[in-house]
Write a protein that binds this DNA or RNA. Structure first.
Lengths: 232, 232
DNA sequence: GCGACGGTTCGGCACCCACCGAACCATCGC
DNA sequence: GCGATGGTTCGGTGGGTGCCGAACCGTCGC
C-alpha cells in the first residue's frame, strides 16, 4: 500500500503553477532546455533550476546534459499518460464527447502532426528516416545535418541559405515521439523542411489543430524526392 | 488545453499528507464520517472539516449529510481510478509483474473480498440482496436492519445479542462497491455476518489479502440459509 | 427540558516554499 | 586569451497554508 506522505510528495511536484506549466509544455514530447522552460513559465533561470531539480528527483522528468545546455523531457510515456489522464479530468465536456473526439483526432495525430514547428508522427519519422538513409542526416550520437544535407536543403528543397544559419538554435535536433517511440528531426532543419512541405502544398493542416495530412501532390513529390510511399 | 494553474490547483488537493491519507482511506469504497477521517489522519476535527471542504470543492469527494453526520466518499469511479493509477506508479516492482498480479488478483477481488470488516464484491452484494429479499434488511433511504433481521441474526446466525449493540457504530450501513456499482451491507451487522461466515468456514481468505472465496461447505450452507446459488 | 456528541467557525501561530538577484562556474565562439 | 551565454548556488524575503483550541451550532437520546 502506498503511504500518504509518498502520495502527497508526488502530488506536490505538480501542485505548483510553475512546475505544472513546465510539465504541460513538455507534454509535446520535445526535450526543452532549462532556459526555454524558465522563459515559458515566466520565472528566473535560478528558479527554474530548483524546479527542474525537484521534478527530476521525483522521477517525472529526465535530463541530458549537452555542453552548457541542460535538456529536459518527460521521464517516460507513463508520465505523459498520467498527465493526460489528469488533464482529461479537468477538461470541460462529457467524457463521451471527449472520447469520440479523442478517437478520431488521435488517429490523425498519430499519422502526422506538427510538433512546435516541425513534422512529427509517422510522417515525421518517415521523413527523418529517409533523410538519414540518403546521407543527408546523421543519427550517430545526436542528430546532425551532413554537408551533403545542407546542399540538398538549398538546391533540392529551395531553402534560402541564410535561413539555415538562424542564430543559436541547433541546425538539427532529435525530438522524441511519444506515439512512435522514435526520434524525428527538429531544430532549424526540421522547421525548414516542415515549412517547405506546407508551403508547396505537399502536406496540409487538418482543421485548426496540429494534425496534418499528405496531399495528392505531396504524395507524388515525396515519392520522387525521398522514395517515400505508404503515406496513408 | 488545460491551464497550468488549473493543473496545479488540482494536484494541490493531493499534495498534503492529511488530504492524501483521507483519499487513500476512501479508496476502500466506503463512505466515512468526518470524525473517522480526522482520527485516521491524526488531526483535529476542525482541521478535517477544512480539508474535506477543499476536497469536495475540488470535485474529488462527494458528501451526504445525515443527521449530525457528514458522510464522505470518493466522488466517482474516475477518481478512484486516477488515484490507483498514481499509487501504482509509486509502488515498487516492474509494471509487468504488477500487471500480472493485478490481472489474477483482480478477478478474485471482484468475486469476493472483505471491505474493512464486512463482505464486498459480488459475494457481498449477493448476500445483501438476499437479506433484503427475505425482509431482514430494508434498503429504503439508507440501510436498516429490521426487527425480524435482528432475530434472524441472533437465532439463525448465532450472533450474541450484546454484539449487536456495539456503541455508536450504526447497525447497518450502505457501503458502495466500485466493482459492482451497488451498495452492500456494512456497519455492525455487516461485520457480524462476515465474522460468522469466516468463523464457520463458509468463506475463507485467499492468501493474505482481502480476497475471499466461498468454500464447499459454505456453498451448501448459503444455499440452505439464503437460497444463494451461483457463487462461483 | 437536559447533557452528550458530531461538526463548523474563527483567531492566531508557525512553518514551508516559491521567488528573486547577485555572484559564480562552465562552455562556446571568436 | 576574451566576451557572451546557459546554468547553478546562496542568502533573504514574503505569502500561503496547515494546524490547533475555544466557542458555537445542530442533532440525538434520555
Amino acid at each position: 500500500m502506498t503511504d500518504a506522505s509518498e502520495l502527497a510528495a508526488f502530488a506536490a511536484l505538480l501542485a505548483d503553477r510553475t512546475r505544472a506549466a513546465m510539465c504541460l509544455a513538455l507534454l509535446d514530447g520535445r526535450a526543452w532546455t532549462a532556459g526555454e522552460l524558465a522563459k515559458h513559465a515566466g520565472v528566473a533561470r535560478s528558479t527554474a533550476t530548483e524546479h527542474l531539480d525537484r521534478l527530476i528527483g521525483g522521477g517525472l522528468l529526465s535530463e541530458a546534459r549537452q555542453g552548457r545546455h541542460r535538456y529536459v523531457r518527460l521521464a517516460d510515456p507513463g508520465v505523459a499518460g498520467l498527465l493526460e489522464d489528469i488533464t482529461a479530468r479537468l477538461e470541460p465536456g462529457l467524457p463521451a464527447v471527449r472520447g469520440l473526439r479523442a478517437a478520431t483526432a488521435d488517429a490523425a495525430l498519430r499519422r502526422g502532426r506538427t510538433c512546435y514547428d516541425h513534422l512529427a508522427g509517422r510522417l515525421g519519422v518517415a521523413v527523418t528516416d529517409a533523410l538519414t538513409r540518403d546521407g543527408l542526416l546523421d543519427q550517430e550520437g545526436g542528430f546532425a545535418v551532413t554537408g551533403y544535407g545542407v546542399t540538398w536543403l538549398i538546391e533540392r528543397l529551395g531553402v534560402e541559405p541564410e535561413r539555415l544559419r538562424a542564430g543559436r538554435r541547433p541546425l538539427a535536433r532529435a525530438c522524441l515521439d511519444w506515439t512512435e517511440r522514435r526520434p524525428h528531426l527538429g531544430g532549424v532543419a526540421g522547421a525548414r523542411v516542415c515549412e517547405t512541405f506546407l508551403g508547396r502544398g505537399w502536406v496540409g493542416r487538418i482543421g485548426s489543430g496540429r494534425a496534418v495530412k499528405v496531399t495528392p501532390s505531396g504524395r507524388v513529390a515525396l515519392r520522387e524526392l525521398l522514395a517515400l510511399t505508404d503515406l496513408d
